[in-house]
């Protein structure tokens, strides 16, 4: 029963990636990264629940807890940055910021 969960997790991850690449709204892009986290959480828990040797462990869930913590930090910092950027340019378009390049 491992594989269906892993496949669902992979699809969630890939959808999040596609969203991150294609959507221009900074907030939606952030939502997409959270979506990728969800895929990974599902995977981690599934690997712990259905290990190859048949003995379940909870390390995957512990990892997931840390992942949630990181996601919370990322959301806090990322949204603060989004607010700052929005204040500067009155837009949420990721394409409005192109400073990191060789002129």
């Amino acid at each position: 029963m491992l594989l269906p969960y892993v496949l669902v997790g992979a699809i969630l991850f890939v959808l999040g990636m596609i969203g991150f690449i294609t959507r221009r709204n900074l907030i939606v892009m952030f939502l997409c990264t959270e979506m990728m986290f969800q895929g990974i959480i599902v995977n981690l828990v599934a690997f712990g629940r259905y290990p190859l040797n048949g003995v379940p462990t909870f390390d995957g869930q512990v990892f997931a807890v840390f992942l949630i913590a990181v996601a919370a930090v990322e959301a806090a910092l990322g949204l603060a940055l989004v607010v700052l950027l929005y204040r500067n340019k009155e837009t949420l378009d990721a394409g409005a910021w192109k400073l990191l390049k060789d002129e």
């Binding site: 992979a10 699809i11 890939v14 959808l15 990636m17 596609i18 690449i21 294609t22 959507r23 221009r24 709204n25 939606v28 837009t91 949420l92 378009d93 990721a94 394409g95």
Partner: peptide
């Protein structure tokens, strides 16, 4: 509706990359 919400960027390449990975 903001213009950056109304249009996706490179949807084709993004989808191809994502689904190849999948």
């Amino acid at each position: 509706l903001a213009p950056y919400d109304a249009r996706a960027r490179e949807p084709f390449v993004g989808c191809v990359a994502g689904f190849v990975l999948l």
